Amino acid sequence: MGYSLQTLWHEKARYSAGVGAVAFSAVLMALQFGLLLGLFTITSIPLDHTDPRIVWIGSKGVEAIDLGQPIPISYLGRVGEHSGVLPPEPYIANFANFQKPDGGTDLCFLLGHFGNAGIPDMLTSEQRTALTEPFAIVMDESDMKRMGMTAVNQTAKINGKEVRLVGSVKGLKSLAAPWVICSHYTASELMGALLPPDHTKYLLAKCDTPERAADLAAHLKAEYSDMAVYTSGEFSTSTRTYWLLRTKAGIAIGYAALLGLLVGGAVTVQTLYAATIASAKEYATLFALGIPRWRVYVTVLFQAFWIGIFGIALAYPVVQLLAAGARAAGTQVILRWEIMTGTALITMGMSVFAGLFALRSVRGIEPISLLR
């Protein structure tokens, strides 16, 4: 092990390409999957910014917040009376047609809350009060330009009915259709005949603790098979997973990361192979002196191991720096420990594989080659 480190240090120019290739692969994989996670957190923002103690009740088989079908408000009675659980509140989450003030149309996504359970936490108390007015809406400031809204109190139309912007927030950026926050009454009026009478999209039951929410969700799942029941965390995960698989973005990003891994692996293999061939006379001398072949094999593998270690060590600060730059530009990159650990393990596996491949050249070295 010490000999392999000394070799790497004295021949650093020879092995630097391998270290760089490993670092490149690790950086690409970590950033790709960090961007993927950051991208799909946007799809679950309405869930992630409401109280985590909420139990969401929706139509049977619903997998994402934007896919709910109308359910009878009479489902309220199914929750019944449970200690530590407030009466459920209806909640509307539905696509709608947004007519811009200056002409043109676009899709938006209504988030119509009845009480406090479904209100995103970034709203101020003044905005919550303003939303009690009929046909008042709030949206994220990053979506205002896209929807032709330039100032508070400006009006537009949703599904042909006039609405008024009473405020904007930060942190409610959308992936597709902009989120539009309003009251349940406003959302019901805007939906009109598209939502059957005495129906809503979700029922939200707020519990006093997350543990109580989990217990209530488990109870309702076991009791009623004709409706979907989630805790906020479960529904958030389900929404992200659905969007990830439906859009195939995860597969595309996975292929890009795999390509980086293959490129890095190929360069590392070539670096180790060339370095081993260049050291053929030294290895032949060792064999002639009676040094067992397995010790040389171990040396080559340790060289591959240390190339992986140095490559990962180089990649880590680069990943953090690039992620910080992406966040400064408004792009979310989530570098969870699972991503960093998985990237390190995969990269080390690639390096060890490169070392195993390089052993092919060692097997062909014979002491007699010194006489040529």
Rank of each mutant, 00 (worst) to 15 (best):
G342I: 02
D102F: 10
S361E: 10
W306E: 01
V263R: 05
A151C: 03
E63R: 14
T129I: 11
Y283H: 13
V152A: 06
R53C: 02
S174V: 04
Q270I: 07
A217H: 01
E211H: 04
I365N: 01
E234T: 11
V169Q: 02
A329V: 07
A96R: 04
A64K: 14
T239L: 09
I54G: 00
N116D: 10
D121T: 09
K201C: 04
V263F: 15
A217S: 15
Y230C: 03
G2I: 07
G58N: 05
T43G: 03
S279V: 02
S59L: 04
F33D: 00
I119W: 01
G311T: 00
A278I: 08
P120V: 11
I42F: 14
S59V: 04
L35E: 00
A284V: 13
F95L: 07
L110N: 10
S232I: 01
A64P: 12
T186M: 11
Y202E: 03
G250P: 07
A358Q: 05
R246G: 08
L314C: 14
T271N: 03
Y185A: 11
A130K: 09
R293T: 14
A326K: 06
V27K: 00
G38P: 09
A205K: 02
N94M: 09
T285W: 06
M139P: 01
Q127K: 13
A218W: 10
T43L: 07
R372D: 06
D208N: 13
L262F: 15
A156L: 06
R53M: 03
Y75V: 03
L8P: 01
T285F: 08
A151Y: 05
G112K: 04
G84A: 14
I57N: 03
T105G: 03
G192H: 14
R146H: 07
A313E: 03
R240A: 15
L123E: 13
W9A: 12
L36N: 09
V267G: 07
L175K: 12
V19P: 02
W337D: 09
G325R: 11
T41V: 15
K206S: 00
G34E: 06
Q332S: 14
S225T: 12
R372E: 10
V352C: 04
A214E: 12
A218F: 12
A288I: 11
V79Q: 07
P72R: 06
Y3E: 05
G34W: 05
E89D: 12
G308I: 03
H82K: 10
T186S: 15
A93F: 15
M147N: 05
I251N: 09
M147G: 00
H49N: 10
L67R: 15
E63A: 14
Q332E: 15
V333Q: 02
M144N: 08
L31Q: 02
N97G: 05
T132E: 12
L107S: 08
I137R: 06
I181H: 05
W337K: 08
S351C: 13
S361R: 13
V333S: 02
A304I: 04
D226M: 05
R293M: 14
I309E: 02
L5I: 15
